[in-house]
């Protein structure tokens, strides 16, 4: 934020109002992470449990068909948006088929 030009009082909305809904998505929180969840699309059963629990939200449903090596077909996939994932690991813990790997971030 310090790199941005700070607006003066005339330019700012009155009373601290924020007029652009959801604009926090321009602020990435991915750098909070030390470990990251990596979804193994082949093991993933698309139960969406991770998508439900992710508190950011940083897990999204992508409308991309996927066929596993064993031939199982899914109409969609689940992916982590690493711009936002803070690396809490709740998705890893909640994943019943153990399809989310917990990988240390490279520094």
């Amino acid at each position: 934020m310090t790199q941005e030009k700070l607006l003066g009082w005339k330019e700012l909305p009155l009373g601290g109002a924020i007029l652009e809904p959801g604009n926090s998505e321009t602020r990435y929180t991915g750098d909070w992470r030390t470990f990251k969840p990596v979804i193994e699309q082949d093991k993933c059963t698309r139960c969406l449990r991770c998508w439900i629990v992710c508190p950011e939200p940083a897990i999204y449903i992508i409308d991309q068909p996927y066929t596993t090596k064993s031939g199982r077909q899914f109409k969609f996939s689940v992916e982590v948006n690493y711009n936002y994932c803070k690396g809490c690991g709740m998705c890893v813990e909640e994943c019943e088929p153990k399809a989310i790997d917990w990988v240390e971030e490279e520094k």
């Binding site: 959801g22 604009n23 321009t26 929180t29 992470r33 508190p55 803070k86 690396g87 709740m90």
Partner: peptide
């Protein structure tokens, strides 16, 4: 609820509000 908020990593309030 848009991401980019400052709740702690693993804050279940995020889950609830979302």
């Amino acid at each position: 609820l848009a991401p980019g908020h400052g709740l702690c990593a693993g804050c279940t309030a995020g889950t609830i509000v979302k």
